[in-house]
Design a protein around this nucleic acid. Structure first.
Lengths: 147, 147
DNA sequence: TTAATTCGGACCAAAAACGTCCGATATATA
DNA sequence: TATATATCGGACGTTTTTGGTCCGAATTAA
């Protein structure tokens, strides 16, 4: 299991894009500076997001990235899995020959339920939800303060 | 976040103990062989379980380990956290000065919900539940077959 | 006293996380 | 066409975590 900085940065990056007008391109450099994420690292992460079809990239001068889909159509889980691969919890699968456990596997069942609990939360919340919550938070926060 | 082999082995080890008569002592060596887990590694894991008060250890010849509590009183989460420390997901906490995110933190809220979903499943299932499920599985499985 | 067991910590190798760097490629514009 | 500006893609490197091993010390039954 994971949910590493890479996944986290991916979500933050997409949030940044999503606050632009739809289709507007944004450079990696701007996202990197404003979100305080290493530029080269973020660039690599964005490549995964492009491959997954979540963002469109425009190369060359005046290029950048733009969201490829409606934020309401993007569950956060999809972003995270685009960046760090499928989230898989249980090391063994019930009734499978590759299960390493001796004497059956009630554990596998439990891990699967745990995993579902996790994924449910990440699937129910979309990028659009995140933005909305974010904007609410910003309203109630004093201006001068970072985070 | 985690749920590593160490945690998994811890649960397997306790399942093994729980199938003994209450209070009966079992040696690390037996658990190790029957569950096919490295003995030294398992020994280290059991030390954490002792510290957490989940098992009692008896040193010296004829010693071993025994469950310190009723299996129905032990949520699986407790076992896992005893072995690998608290499961913590969100790197930042809303409204805390140590939150690294710029511009508030809807992400933290989401991560917290995801974490809760995960922990819920691991808390609702106790060691006793696991044993029960395990026994059901074993009944339906052909004898000669491993896992 | 001896054999059997856990305790505790030092140690180690491999993998994963978290990046950096750089040349290649594409594109807008002067 | 030349140049400046961006992304693309992969090689590379460092640090942390994982998954153990090992061994001497302490404890206890016989």
């Amino acid at each position: 299991m994971q949910i590493t900085r890479a996944g986290e940065y991916g979500v933050m990056g997409l949030m940044h894009l999503a606050r632009r007008r739809p289709g507007q391109r944004t450079m990696i450099d701007e996202v990197s500076r404003q979100q305080r994420i290493s530029k080269s690292f973020l660039a690599k992460i964005f490549q995964s997001l492009v491959k997954a079809g979540l963002v469109r990239s425009i190369r060359g001068a005046g290029g950048g990235f733009a969201l490829a889909k409606n934020p309401a159509q993007i569950p956060v889980l999809e972003i995270i899995e685009a960046v760090e691969g499928r989230i898989v919890f249980h090391r063994c699968k019930m009734a499978r020959p590759d299960c390493e456990h001796v004497g059956g596997c009630a554990l596998c069942g439990l891990f699967e339920r745990a995993q579902d609990g996790l994924k449910d939360a990440l699937t129910r919340t979309t990028l659009a939800d995140l933005i909305e919550q974010q904007e609410k938070i910003e309203l109630t926060q004093p201006k001068g303060r970072l985070n």
